[in-house]
Design a protein around this nucleic acid. Structure first.
Length: 506
RNA sequence: UCCUCAGUAGCUCAGCUGGUUAGAGCACCUGACUGUUAAUCAGGGGGUCGUUGGUUCGAGCCCAACCUGGGGAGCCA
């Protein structure tokens, strides 16, 4: 800001408003400087101000400053003799501050650029006695308990950044292919999606529930005048959109009230569900494979530093394990492998043959032995196919109709449906999809056979009554993809604030 | 929900066959040093050993139940 006197003189000379506008514009355009850009050398020799959070303060001289724009810290070098001791004591791990100085080539090892600071201002104190994060390795379990602060660690900073890049890549992929993004409802009255237990959404007073004459809760009195729940899938609504827009995708929150306590399940997660008119199962599988490879490649191309850090983290973790439990490939190796190689495609029937003749089945090492066609595949079977037999991602298709959902298209053999699952090492099913049953009579028969109320699905059946068309789609669990790409073993660590049974903190 | 392993300082962990006053590193406090990379060196404070009950002369250690967390399974994405 110019000194007051000069400012006043100029306003008199040039006109008050012109200067005011100029000043405001300058202020508005003064973007905050990101540490990422400094470390890229964009401010070499310039005097600038940088803001961020202290990671460590070494030797009363070196502040490692991080602003989340990238993994690396900016080293801010201060002349400690210039400051009071009481001031230096405030530069603690976790404190936020602004430093002004010149960006110079660093004489030390470990960084190309550093800031020779002229002044430092503390913005927010961080009581070192109470701040839970230390400049040391913390367990993921501990960090999960302080999910509101873990974003300030290297690991979670990297995960958040990768997550953003993948969200962007999802939209970019579909947009460039001409798919339209559709927001399907989060609150749904449909009870027939069949993908799992649902959370009820209500404004009813629990202390004074309206009852029907039969003594049941009367949802006619509820906000929507019916029993409503949180969505478990946007698929049925997505299908209606595809049968008008041709190619669509959804990317929204999904809720499952299952009492699942595993490293691969969340009660609230994000799912991507493309739905395409005039696609058969082969087209569907080809799209799924192209999509996943694109996302993996995008992460490799745009998150190199963060992935390298996560790869090292995983490698260190693997070293703690006994030899036989270790992964053969490192994280980056595995990502390249998936991006560069074709997935194995085989039918359920072929998979059953392989499993039936497999060593663990013959030696009765499987907990669930494969006896005959029609059995549902367990985790151990999927893992065997992916991790032992093929050693690459596998797409299984044409499953028995009896173990799959009602909307999947019945094949000519009358006993299998055009379903497909993409199985990944470590996490199992990452994608589940199918060609949809477009024939009205066949679909209606299935619905009635399963005892689903056809009246509830009347709107859905309309798509088959009027201009029905073959169509396909799949669902990809975004957090499972995140697990694969970041190498994180627990799904609760790849979403900022995980929701799972007994936990809705933050 | 089931199986399994664990719970000792703010964090990560050690603690022998049940036996005196429960230890270490990091963090914190005091001091030294001042081009360091999770800085280093010297000293200091910090514990209801998850909870409750039981066995025993005596329990961090043995037993039971419960709570919490990890791993695996089921349900699935």
């Amino acid at each position: 800001m110019p000194p007051g006197g000069l400012f006043l003189n100029n306003t008199i000379k040039n006109g008050f408003f012109a200067v005011l506008i100029h000043y405001r514009r300058a202020k508005r355009n003064m973007a905050k400087i990101r540490i990422k850009d400094i470390l890229d050398g964009k401010y070499a020799g310039q005097k600038i101000t940088v803001k961020g959070w202290v990671r460590t303060f070494r030797n009363d001289r070196f502040i490692a400053l991080n602003d989340g724009s990238c993994l690396a810290n900016l080293q801010v070098v201060i002349d400690f003799e210039q400051y009071e001791e009481a001031f230096l004591k405030k530069i603690t791990t976790g404190a936020s501050l602004a430093a002004t100085g010149t960006i110079v080539e660093s004489p030390g090892k470990g960084q190309a650029w550093e800031m020779q600071a002229e002044s430092v201002a503390i913005i927010g104190l961080s009581d070192p006695d109470k701040y839970p994060l230390q400049p040391k390795k913390h367990s993921l379990e501990f960090l999960r308990e302080i999910a509101h602060l873990r974003v300030r660690t290297n690991t979670f900073g990297a995960i958040y950044r990768v997550r953003h890049n993948l969200i962007y890549a999802v939209h970019k992929f579909f947009h460039e292919k001409g798919f339209y993004n559709v927001h399907t409802p989060i609150i749904t009255g449909s009870d027939a999606e069949g993908a799992g237990e649902m959370f009820t959404v209500t404004t009813l007073d629990f202390d004074n529930l309206p009852r029907t004459p039969e003594g049941e809760v009367d949802f006619k009195e509820d906000f929507f005048a019916r029993h409503t729940k949180l969505t478990v899938s946007g698929q049925l609504e997505g299908e209606t959109a595809a049968l008008g827009l041709s190619e669509i995708y959804t990317f929204g929150p999904t809720f499952r009230a299952e009492n699942s306590n595993t490293s691969r399940h969340l009660a609230e997660f994000w799912m991507i569900e493309p739905e395409m008119a005039f696609y058969d199962l082969d087209d569907n599988m080809a799209l799924a494979e192209e999509f996943v490879k694109y996302l993996v490649r995008f992460a490799l191309d745009h998150c190199a530093d963060d992935l390298a850090f996560l790869a090292k983290r995983l490698a260190d973790e693997e070293k703690q394990k006994p030899q036989h439990q270790r992964q053969e490939m490192g994280l980056l190796e595995q990502l390249h492998f998936v991006a560069d190689n074709d997935f194995e495609r085989l039918t359920y029937s072929e998979a059953i043959e392989i499993l039936r003749n497999s060593k663990p089945n013959k030696k009765k090492k499987f907990k669930y032995l494969i006896e005959e066609w029609g059995a549902d595949l367990q985790s151990e079977h999927e893992r065997y196919l992916v991790e032992k037999h093929f050693k690459k991602p596998v797409i299984l298709y044409n499953y028995p109709a009896s173990i799959k959902a009602f909307y999947m298209r019945l094949n000519e053999d009358g006993k299998t449906v055009a379903a497909m699952d993409v199985l990944f090492p470590g996490i199992g099913e990452i994608i589940g999809g199918s060609q949809r049953e477009e024939r009205y009579e066949v679909l209606l028969q299935k619905i009635e056979m399963l005892g689903i109320d056809a009246q509830e699905l009347d709107w859905y059946l309309d798509t088959r009554r009027f201009g029905t068309a073959p169509h396909s789609g799949f669902g990809l669990g975004f957090e499972r993809l995140m697990q694969f790409i970041t190498g994180m073993g627990n799904i609760r660590d790849v979403i900022p604030f995980p929701r799972f049974p007994g936990h809705a903190d933050f």
